[in-house]
């Protein structure tokens, strides 16, 4: 059973990375297919900056990818069947979110170059406050389930999905997803206005690893959103994993679409938006969810 679930996790991550690369191409409407782009990156030479922190540079994409895998491991593929069936599933996911900020910071810090460093600082300033709405949204989803376990949260959505019961949850979580996957309006790390930000000085295999980790995190955050708001593996006729895959792909498309259709503002204005609008909104969301769950 455990082997089967581990296999499902690997298949989901690999397939999801491919689907994510394909979505990026379709939505952005340019570039080569994901496999060809990966091959092109892989054969390109890598860049070496002056006095980089080699250990942390290698660690960053590995940590990012590992966090995506750990985050996905708490998502149930069938009702009550996650690889890591923990009573504190969403806290584990929250830890993955927090550690993702560190992975991105390390990626920007280690090359010892200005653009990556500025990208890393900007990202940390934006991503740390984004953790707060993320926690409130997840806690709100845990209230009707009366449990921190993702399986219990899925189980609590048998009658009505959380996306209906807590309508603010999914949009707020999509914002968290944009932050974690460095996309669109929340991409303060790898943005084009910084010549690639934390990836500015990177090419070849290292860049490829980073892009794969980014797409893996997109799969992971979408799977969590599917489980928390769209009932995860619950659905008629088709088996659980298939439903989860469909819903994950839908959330991935939503995040990719939101990433390309919303523009990015300056970090200071975004910081103001997060603290004065998004955070009170998530408080309100939590309050409503709490009253409804009584």
């Amino acid at each position: 059973m455990i082997l089967l679930l581990a296999l499902a996790l690997v298949v989901t991550l690999l397939g999801g990375v491919l689907v994510g690369g394909w979505l990026d191409r379709v939505v952005a409407g340019r570039g080569a297919g994901p496999l060809r782009a990966a091959a092109a990156l892989a054969v390109r030479g890598s860049v070496r900056t002056e006095a980089p922190d080699d250990l942390l540079q290698r660690l960053a994409p590995i940590l990012y990818l590992a966090l995506a895998a750990v985050g996905l491991s708490v998502v149930p593929f069938a009702p009550g069947a996650a690889l890591v069936e923990s009573p504190v599933g969403i806290v584990i996911w929250g830890s993955c979110e927090a550690l993702t900020i560190i992975a991105v910071f390390l990626h920007g810090w280690s090359p010892n170059a200005p653009f990556p460093l500025i990208g890393a600082y900007r990202y940390v300033a934006i991503a740390l406050p984004v953790m707060l709405p993320s926690m409130f949204v997840l806690i709100a989803a845990a209230l009707p389930a009366e449990s921190l376990s993702l399986s219990a949260i899925v189980e609590s959505q048998r009658d009505i999905w959380n996306v209906v019961r807590q309508p603010l949850g999914l949009p707020l979580f999509v914002m968290v997803g944009l932050t974690l996957t460095l996309r669109g309006p929340m991409d303060y790390a790898d943005a084009a206005d910084m010549a690639g930000g934390t990836s500015a000085e990177e090419g070849g295999g290292a860049r490829l690893a980073w892009e794969i980790a980014r797409l893996a995190m997109l799969v992971s955050v979408s799977a969590v959103a599917a489980a928390v708001f769209l009932g995860g593996p619950l659905g008629p006729v088709l088996p659980g994993p298939v439903w989860l895959w469909f819903k994950t792909a839908a959330v991935m498309a939503l995040i990719v679409l939101a990433g390309t259709s919303v523009t990015r503002t300056t970090p200071s204005r975004m910081l103001g938006l997060i603290w004065t609008i998004v955070l009170p909104l998530s408080f309100l969301h939590l309050g409503i969810a709490g009253v409804l769950a009584l």
């Binding site: 923990s86 806290v91 927090a98 900020i101």
Partner: peptide
């Protein structure tokens, strides 16, 4: 809970 919450809290704090 205590173990995972330590990881979560310390990740933010050490950043």
């Amino acid at each position: 809970y205590i173990g995972v919450a330590t990881v979560f809290m310390m990740a933010v704090e050490m950043m």
